[in-house]
Design a protein around this nucleic acid. Structure first.
Lengths: 309, 309
DNA sequence: CAAAGACAGTAGGAAAACTACAGGATGAGA
DNA sequence: TCTCATCCTGTAGTTTTCCTACTGTCTTTG
């Protein structure tokens, strides 16, 4: 009997369990031995060894085979469940449809972060690292970092501490109010006191409320177009539909290109303690594919920060 | 890689999986080896063997330990689940609180069958088989014959075929109308045509409707006391509350003792294709405790039948 | 630049698993 | 009733697997 984990667990000789299961299913050592391509004696020894390990008989010996007793039935039913899980996991591992999956790295992030920050920078990475194929899984609900359907890393907005994962800070999430330049041309100077006279574009983060609160104007009524995704809010602002309050890093390129301008002439931004973090199941070394992607991401993040407002 | 079941399944060398799990959890061969009281090389070989078996790396090799890659994380998460199930089943098997459980046999049946048929006959069996302790688990919902909390056999009312279990016919379930003798003394002769003038005691089996239908009187309104358990209906009949339509075998003793009489002078009974069956997970040999109980039950059933109406 | 710590790989001994065969019990069939 | 067939039990002896011990290589660290 083998200890497991921190000594709390107990596991029998696992290889013997296959013989146990087959014997229970087929009702005799002989039939089980035939299925397993072994001799009858080998199977009998394995099962006897388990019964001795447990100090508890699992079968009634009949003149014509065996029949599991109550403890045996109870144990074997649960054993089948466990073996089925291992079997399923093993077959999926063997019959994985993409044989080159080893060099493929799946990054889960939001649609907005992917289109506004990650994808524009990705070609450079791929040129420098042709052996790593980065796949972006844009999904607004978080994907698991371990288990079935897991991803290699996730880039998510949030604040520490993060349970069950290893997180590294990537980028701050300071938001600024932006709009199309045309919206400002023929009107008076804007300030926190009169900004709400323009349409205020909202996304699902409810930033405007906190922004007005930090300006000393709590309870301002937010009216204007509403989008679930930040990227849609940005596009609406570019179309002149109003003022959007969005993370600065998502509109850096648009500000540079002139399709968006800071609505308050770089005066105010909404600082939060939250930011964008890279999350992985465990720390990765700098030489692994995952580690190389993380290092590159962090370098990109450092490169962009000093140019901020 | 081992085939499993009818060849559909595939299982790796199960003993190696413990090393795999520990390595993933502790992040290095060395730490895993220490936990398992082995050398670093042994653990490394086991994990390498698995990776070769799967033809798929499960870990990224870091300069300072290892880190599971995506396939590894996915596999190990599911592996932990399976090992946890085996561990739990094993610990419950080892720490079972009743060491003499091997000689204890749990029979699941209904409260009525237990009190009206089984318990009266049980002392005789126990005298003849002092080594078998029969425990009766009276429960109106069926208990499983395998898995956690399973019972050794169940005696249940029903008709073949029974899925997922081995059934042997024990007793017919023919029902007869019975009542207290006092109920008949000062009244005219009863027949199916006027029986419904007396209170009709019902249990949850809705026998009266079918009984009147088989007498050519469908749609008769059933009025009288209603009980969920047949035994309570019998007790009510004994108290003179009305006529109960119950399996003959439950009132055999009462008819003999005179506390109940056949309401129609042995004329009519309700025959159904259903009956009482002994159900076990698998056939048991005549020498096993389970087999001896079954043989005795069947003998009791045969002994009672010829004396029937 | 050297020391420490980790994994990779290999040879040989230790342990286990498996086979083969003898023995005993039970049921089927002549 | 007797024999045969079938199945489990148990025990050597052999084969295979597993584990250890050790060397080599790489990387971090002081």
């Amino acid at each position: 009997m083998r200890r497991w984990g921190a000594g709390r667990g107990l596991l029998p000789t696992l290889n013997h369990l296959i013989a146990l299961e087959a014997t229970a299913r087929l009702g005799s050592f002989r039939a089980a031995a035939e299925e397993m391509s072994l001799t009858q004696g080998a199977v009998a020894q394995q099962v006897r060894a388990l019964e001795k390990e447990f100090d508890c008989p699992l079968f009634d010996r009949l003149p014509r085979g065996l029949s599991a007793n109550r403890q045996g039935r109870e144990y074997i039913t649960r054993l089948r469940l466990a073996l089925g899980i291992i079997d399923e996991a093993t077959r999926e591992l063997l019959h994985r449809d993409t044989p080159d999956e080893a060099g493929r790295l799946i990054v889960s992030t939001t649609s907005t972060f992917a289109s506004r920050w990650l994808i524009p920078r990705l070609p450079e990475f791929s040129r420098a690292n042709p052996d790593i194929a980065v796949m972006i899984d844009a999904c607004d609900t978080a994907r698991p970092l371990s288990g079935k359907g897991c991803v290699d890393m996730a880039i998510r907005w949030g604040a520490p501490p993060f349970a069950e994962s290893h997180a590294r800070f990537l980028l701050p999430a300071s938001s600024i109010p932006v709009c199309a330049p045309a919206l400002l041309s023929n009107s008076k100077a804007l300030s926190p006191d009169n900004l709400d006279e323009l349409p205020l574009i909202s996304d699902s983060h409810k930033n405007w409320q906190r922004w007005f609160e930090s300006c000393g104007r709590p309870g301002v009524k937010i009216s204007g177009p509403v989008f679930s995704q930040t990227s849609h809010a940005i596009e609406a602002a570019e179309q002149g539909m109003g003022v959007a309050l969005v993370p600065w890093l998502f509109v850096e390129a648009a500000l540079h290109a002139g399709t968006l301008v800071h609505a308050l002439n770089n005066q105010l931004q909404l600082d939060t303690d939250a930011g964008f973090y890279i999350m992985t199941a465990q720390p990765s070394g700098p030489e692994s594919a995952c580690g190389r992607v993380i290092d590159w991401l962090l370098a990109q993040g450092r490169a962009i920060e000093p140019a901020g407002p």
